[in-house]
Computed example of a mutant assay.
Amino acid sequence: MKKLVLVTLLLSGAASAQNLVPVKLQLKWFPQAQFAGFFVAQAKGYYKAEGLDVQLLPIGDQSPIQTVATGAADFGTTWITDLLTARQQGLPVVHIAQIFQQSGYTLVALKSSNIKAPKDLKGKRVGVWPSGNEYPAVALLKKYGMTTSLDASVARPDVQAVTYPFDPAIVFPDKVDVVSAMTYNEVDQIVGLGYGLDKINIIKVSDYGVNLLEDLMFTSARVLNEKNFRGSGLSGREVAARLVRASLRGWDYAVKNQKEAVNIVLPLCGNTCKGSGTRADARAHQTWQMREVAKLYQAGATLKGRAGYLEPAAYQGSVKLLRDLGILKQAPAAGAVDYRVWEAATGKKAH
């Protein structure tokens, strides 16, 4: 009888595992604490509790937009400027949840350079990232009336943009005067290069009216319109709501239990754990990163009990900024953001 019960339980578990809906979520970078909430949701079984078997895909220095638009992934994380410019190019990608409620993008210079504010950037070399990640820097410079070498139509640009593959050690401080840095990643990498916080000036672009929100969750219109996602009997919209609900649960847990979250991330992040060739202590870097991304999550709508919500004012502010700067030619269609997924995931109403 005991053997029969055991066999029944094992078969039941196997059947349950087989009934999980396979979902591919494309992350914007390599595994690290930037995505802690997703890894926690996976480790704690929050996705399985929603009937999902979620595969978290790393991508490196490419845009997740393409993998989702082509169907290689079902969902992804990216920055709002990437999503809106992709929409402008005709790619039917849709915003479904806003994870970070505040921008973590900065520009870093040595204190000895006397570069303290955007007005000091004229005539300087500014390190920017490729694949749409240059937009915050471009937006800041355009706001202050400066042209860059990224615009081929400008004969004598005010700023020389130096594109490089994310590792600040490649260009800073010898090849650029100012380097792009996220508060949660490259700032600590620069510290690890021997330039402590007392030796650098950090220009937070959000302090100067460029608060282009970063890590959000998105999918394609095709996925949302699917009536029977992967033969699961669930619609694409239902799967999206389950994914968002479990992910927000993971983020809430990660922010409240940061040490445990770091322990979950560390076995997954490999060489990325240390940052790009800087700190020898992987735990120290991921702890820094977890602390800083928690600040970006615990802001705005999250503080109002509405985690994952894209506040209309913040969205319209981003659209207006990008239109004023000529990065967007027209306002995105209403379908660029689908609040119904967030409403279904949280049981709350969008304003």
Rank of each mutant, 00 (worst) to 15 (best):
K2V: 03
K2D: 01
L6K: 14
V7M: 09
T8E: 07
L10E: 08
L10A: 09
S12K: 03
A15F: 09
A17K: 14
N19T: 12
F39L: 12
A41G: 15
Q42T: 03
Y47G: 02
A49F: 03
D53P: 00
Q55F: 00
L57A: 06
L57N: 10
G60F: 01
A69I: 09
T70P: 01
A73C: 11
T77V: 02
T77R: 12
W79P: 00
T81S: 14
L84F: 09
A86G: 11
A97T: 07
L107V: 00
L110K: 05
S113H: 05
N114V: 01
P118H: 10
V128G: 02
V138A: 07
V138K: 05
L141A: 10
G145N: 11
M146P: 07
V159E: 13
T163E: 15
P165I: 10
P168D: 13
A169E: 04
I170G: 06
I170F: 14
A181W: 15
Y184R: 00
G192P: 04
G192I: 00
G192V: 00
G196R: 01
I200R: 06
I200P: 03
I200A: 10
I202T: 04
I203S: 06
Y208P: 14
Y208R: 11
Y208S: 13
M217R: 03
T219F: 12
R222K: 15
N225M: 04
K227Y: 02
N228W: 11
F229H: 05
G231F: 13
S235R: 13
V239G: 09
A240M: 07
R242A: 08
R242L: 11
L248Y: 06
K256S: 14
K259V: 01
A261G: 05
V265C: 10
L266C: 12
L268R: 15
T272V: 06
C273E: 08
R283G: 13
E292S: 09
V293N: 08
A294V: 07
G300I: 11
T302M: 05
R306G: 06
G308F: 08
P312C: 05
L325C: 04
I327G: 03
L328D: 05
K329C: 02
A333H: 03
A336W: 00
D338C: 03
V341E: 12
